[in-house]
């Protein structure tokens, strides 16, 4: 780790000001950033912690929408009961240590292609709220570790429309226990969504064929015969593109079955 300045602002405005420095870096739960710093793979001059800003914390549900503050930990999301499928997703991230430090805002700002939350956000048709605007999930995730966030833009909350049915099925990468393939399915007033994480070289994506099949018949059986093209899927020591493409089918069927 290199030496750095550290600030822990109390308000969003103070955070925006602190992040105005060119070499400033926002720090949420630090579950990706701190290991990166420890390996000296990044050298920010200043870390700005977002965890002391009250406006970024907490959960509330009203009008069929669950709003989760960006600095809310995975453990807190795992305990809420308004959106059980999302609670289950959050409760399966990492280990207790990670879940008590890591935050939803930090996870989706990083947009790791194997993280669970991007599937939950995209698969729910959620809206990412920042200090400047609201971004629909479909527009938010733009590629591997890439998002629609602009420089200095801070996520403040994520709004999840609570669907009628939803579930997340994750197949663990054996070592890291990130998703080798994770599939989040939901059926709500705006239709069926199937979001896949862990599998694609382009990061989280929606599986359109599965959504179409499930729109008319929300059952695992409706997915029979559907398959994903291995082209563009990740291949590494834990599994090749063929395997990941295959697992998308398996995990989607399991998620639909679990959603009931």
């Amino acid at each position: 780790m290199y030496a750095f300045e550290f600030e822990r602002p109390r308000t969003l405005d103070e955070a925006v000001a602190a992040l105005a420095d060119d070499d400033a870096q926002a720090l949420a739960g630090g579950q990706t950033l701190i290991p990166t710093l420890r390996q000296r793979l990044a050298m920010p001059g200043k870390l700005v912690s977002l965890t002391a800003i009250d406006a970024l914390r907490g959960l509330s549900a009203s009008g069929g929408v669950l709003t989760i503050g960006a600095a809310t930990t995975h453990a807190e999301v795992a305990q809420q009961t308004d959106y059980p499928a999302l609670a289950k997703l959050a409760g399966g991230i990492g280990d207790p240590h990670v879940r008590n430090r890591g935050t939803i805002g930090g996870s989706i700002a990083n947009n790791d292609p194997s993280a669970c939350y991007p599937a939950g956000v995209l698969g729910s048709g959620a809206t990412v709220v920042t200090n400047r605007r609201e971004i629909a999930a479909d527009d938010y995730f733009t590629g591997l570790f890439e998002t629609a966030l602009d420089e200095g833009e801070i996520i403040t909350a994520v709004n999840f429309p609570i669907p009628d049915k939803a579930a997340y099925a994750k197949f663990d990468q054996p070592a890291s226990r990130f998703a080798l393939v994770g599939v989040f399915v939901s059926k709500g007033k705006d239709g069926v969504r199937v979001a896949v994480t862990g599998a694609s070289e382009g990061g989280v994506f929606r599986w359109a064929e599965a959504e179409a099949a499930l729109a008319s018949d929300f059952s695992a059986g409706a997915l029979e015969g559907l398959s994903v093209d291995p082209e563009g899927m990740i291949g590494d020591i834990h599994g090749g593109p063929d395997y990941r493409a295959h697992l998308i089918g398996v995990m989607t069927r399991r998620a639909v079955a679990a959603a009931g």
Partner: peptide, 8 residues
Amino acid sequence: LTPSRVWS
């Protein structure tokens, strides 16, 4: 005998 090896 990882999952991907057994599946393959």
